[in-house]
Amino acid sequence: MPKLVHNCLHLLVHDKCFQVLDEIAVDVASQPSATPKGKVDGQNTEDASRNIPSQGQIVRNSPASRLWRPAAQRNLRNQWSKLASLCNEWQTSASTARSHATSIVNSYLSQRYLDGMDFGVLSDMPNIRTKSCRKLFKQQELYKGELLSSYKDLAKTVTRMIDVCKSMRCYFRGTTNSPLAQFSFFSGDDSDSGDCGGMPVFTLSSIANFEELAWEIVSMFISEINLKRLLVMELLSIHNEKVAEVTQLHWSDEFYEGEFDDLSICSLYSKKTCEIVLPNLESSGSSTTAIIQYKQQKDSDTLQVYITTWMVEVNIDKYRVDEIFAIVGGEMHVDFLQTLN
């Protein structure tokens, strides 16, 4: 009990001088080879190791934490800019995919209209109807390939977003006796949680807070990729059976090579049960029990609803995403909203 009180006091004192000490810490971090400062620092670290029984774990009040802060700040800034640019990448791929989807739908509908179309003088040409249909069908297949590759880009983007969420922590590396403080973004030691005991990184938020906000954004994209997968499945399956037969895709199929690996990173695929999570709405918390595919031909209204659903991204709350980037940008003095489109 007395020890706890002692620690708390220690903490208070240190919190007060953080502002000043931080500046020194930045200096040290930017020129790690500067011997005089390095030496001083080394002594500090040794002092700290004497105070703290559990070695490896940096705690809030240790001098090492003052070195940790600038390193953690740099890392967070990098990771969040990466997240912002990934959001932009998503936007680009999603709208490219949408134009491919529209092309698929259009060439499919044209094939159907060809049936009832009056070819006029052209009807004397041999097989004009069949030839036009074949041509449209080939186009449609081409667009399907494009849509699939855009979907793959989207899935890859989400996995990279998840990577970002997992790379926010900053671990202390090296021995406490070393005069040089080094940091790593991968945990090498189980006792080091990489968040410096929940210390605020900039002004208020700890690493855990930043992670929480990042996950809030990324989970929207995870839900959305799952919904888009359903739409891709449907769009790739549409065809005019009078022209050619294509194999219908099923929810359990792997759409491209390595898709299951990507989906399992997104926690949408379980390698154990070999099952893919069914799409749900991010907000409503509803549960989808099964996917019912209809064999019948899709009418243009349904296809238009598909395209609309693709476009509106029901799972992504743009206002909240902007808000989170504004909050985070405010703490780290970076204007992310300017880079977001």
Partner: peptide
């Protein structure tokens, strides 16, 4: 008009 999307509540 929702086709397969009807599966999602």
């Amino acid at each position: 008009n929702y086709g397969v999307l009807k599966s999602i509540e």
